[in-house]
Design a binder for these strands. Structure first.
Length: 535
RNA sequence: GCGCCCGUAGCUCAGCUGGAUAGAGCAUCUGACUACGGAUCAGAAGGUCGGGGGUUCGAAUCCCUCCGGGCGCGCCA
């Protein structure tokens, strides 16, 4: 049993003992910020005192007396503090159970909370138009979406990574026309694409190629290649065009009609999206008979719901206005709008040595993600994109990120991993094999550096769960940085082998080192950052 | 004007379904190398949590309001 559940059941028993009925649904238990407040703290007395009509300190005191009368395992003392907190002081013995879990579970078993029970989830991200290279701003959504998928997989979901291709419509034709013009040595049309890449691709294009199809394939290949460099592979590339061929778009329109979700006005067909909380109703078929972008999008989401129970969309900040209309459309089609989760990622400002780098200009030039990866490397790019919450705008300084120095967190973290591997390699060289857990005396791990590492390892499963539930991979990168700090501290103060280190202590520390390696490997994998054995 | 995101240390950012004296990294200053990789470790200093109200035992966190920044508000995609 988890130490938290262990203490919660003790509190529950104590509450019953003092006549609290019914018991509260939740008994909060957290690690206090300050060490003198013990190892675990509960505010349950503060939470329930009002309904009891008693002073919280008095309630807390009763709980403390009750629990003290028969201390649970691992608990050294219980005390009342502040306005009525019940603080537990534990012996380190509970931490040894944690290490045993980590080492016996390994990277595939430890920190795998089963939240999904095999439920299918479709994570759609990037979905950049197949008519230009992926730019640096897409990198954030790409790394973020892939990390969300990794978190979901770890938490027991059946995940599909999907990329939606807007492979029809005016933008594609403009792209084809621009390619053709460059091929002929002419300027692209006024409303065409003027970026440098158009000329580059046109020069690769065979004379007899169809500019539309060839250009589409070229852009798609570019997307795959760039994302592949980040270790991102999609299970599904879903084509908008395929829905024309399959009749899915017309089918969707008929479905919406049948459900009375649309009306005719001024010769156009409108979705009654205001019925489901949108600001205004939206045109889905124009008066000239053409679809607006929205109808194929609705058809696409309808199709996704036929393939997965839960959808996660990663959209850029400039698309936040479309969330409510898409949810409205899904509600009309009989889906639970809450099963469509749309995460908005804020913009990325690219800088070089503190100076802004222009993302785009009149010429249509942009900073390609591929160039960013070439410059800073995949690991640094991924870690950096995932270091902060996607809710706030990010400044991405190329010079900072590519620095192979201590002010670059990715190297600090990877170096910690490499050090751990180096210790294990050293032990192997010295002919010291790590013994099975039941032959190791973990109670020798009493140094503060050691218990810090154990506490950090204990937190990982809960953190994985939070990161998954809240779509917040930055919680994992934060953990990795703390774990790395704990590892460097341990490395500095606690020698695994050498003079004055007993064989028994070496064994206990080797187990700790292996547990730490496992934890770090799990975190780095969730971020899609490599775990180097040497650097 | 309306909607969404943001405003926390000099800088970059955590913390936000309310908890105790608000955290980390960088930068600055001071210390630590005769053993597993010093790409490291320890310490110091650094704050009106944008301003103002409110809710309550308790607010960076919830509510209202104002200020500042970003992104959206098409029969474009």
């Amino acid at each position: 049993m988890d130490i938290r559940e262990h203490l919660q059941s003790a509190l529950r028993a104590a509450l019953s003992g003092v006549g609290v009925d019914p018991l509260p649904d939740e008994i909060a238990l957290e690690r206090p910020a300050r060490r003198e407040h013990g190892d675990w703290s509960s505010n349950v007395a503060l939470a329930i005192s009002k309904s009891l009509g008693k002073n919280p300190r008095e309630v807390g005191m009763q709980l403390v007396e009750s629990i003290s009368a028969d201390l649970p395992d691992h608990v050294e003392s219980v005390e009342i503090a502040g306005p009525g907190f019940v603080n537990f002081r534990l012996s380190d013995t509970w931490l040894y159970d944690v290490l045993a879990d980590v080492v016996s579970g390994g990277t595939t078993e430890y920190a795998t909370p089963d939240l999904g029970h095999g439920e299918s989830v479709n994570v759609e991200f990037v979905s950049a138009n197949p008519n230009k290279p992926i730019h640096a701003g897409h990198g954030r959504g790409a790394c973020y979406g892939d990390s969300l998928a990794r978190l979901r997989e770890r938490c027991g979901y059946d995940v599909t990574r999907e990329f939606y291709l807007n492979d029809r419509g005016v933008q594609m034709h403009r792209f084809a026309d621009s390619l053709e013009a460059r091929k002929l040595g002419e300027e692209p049309p006024e409303d065409g694409y003027h970026g440098e890449y158009v000329a580059r691709w046109a020069s690769e294009m065979p004379d007899d190629a169809d500019p539309f199809e060839w250009g589409y394939a070229r852009a798609l290949a570019s997307h795959r290649e760039t994302l592949g460099k980040l270790g991102i592979e999609f299970d599904s590339w879903f084509s908008e065009r395929s829905m024309i061929a399959s009749g899915a778009i017309d089918e969707t329109l008929a479905d919406l009609n049948a459900r009375d979700a649309v009306f005719e006005h001024d010769g156009a067909t409108w979705l009654r999206s205001t019925d489901h909380g949108d600001d205004k109703d939206r045109v889905i078929v124009r008066s000239d008979g053409d679809y607006t972008y929205l109808l194929p999008d609705i058809a696409y989401h309808r199709d996704k719901f036929s393939r997965a129970g839960h959808l996660v969309n990663v959209w850029g900040a400039d698309h936040h206005g479309y969330v409510s209309r898409m949810k409205a459309a899904m509600s009309f089609l009989g889906h639970d709008a809450d099963e469509l989760e749309v995460v908005i990622t804020q913009l990325v400002d690219l800088e070089r040595d503190g100076e802004p780098v222009r993302m785009s200009g009149r010429s249509g030039d942009l900073i390609e993600l591929d160039d960013v990866i070439t410059e800073v490397g995949s690991d640094a790019a991924r870690f950096t994109y995932l270091m902060q919450s996607v809710d706030s705008r990010q400044t991405f300084d190329l010079d900072e990120v590519k620095k192979q120095a201590m002010d670059n967190p990715v190297f600090y973290v990877q170096y910690a991993y490499a050090r751990v591997c180096s210790i294990e390699a050293k032990a192997r060289e010295a002919g010291v094999d790590r013994l099975p857990l039941d032959q190791i005396d973990l109670t020798l791990l009493t140094h503060e550096r050691e218990t810090d590492l154990l506490r950090s390892l204990f937190e990982l499963p809960e953190l994985v769960e939070i990161a998954c539930t809240e779509n917040a991979p930055h919680r994992i990168s934060g953990w990795a940085r703390e774990q790395a700090a704990a590892l460097h501290g341990f490395y500095h103060d606690c020698y695994v082998m050498g003079e004055g280190v007993s064989a028994e202590l070496t064994q206990a520390r080797l187990a700790l080192v292996e547990g730490s390696r496992i934890g770090m490997a799990i975190a780095l994998d969730l971020l899609g950052v490599s775990a180097p054995e040497s650097m």
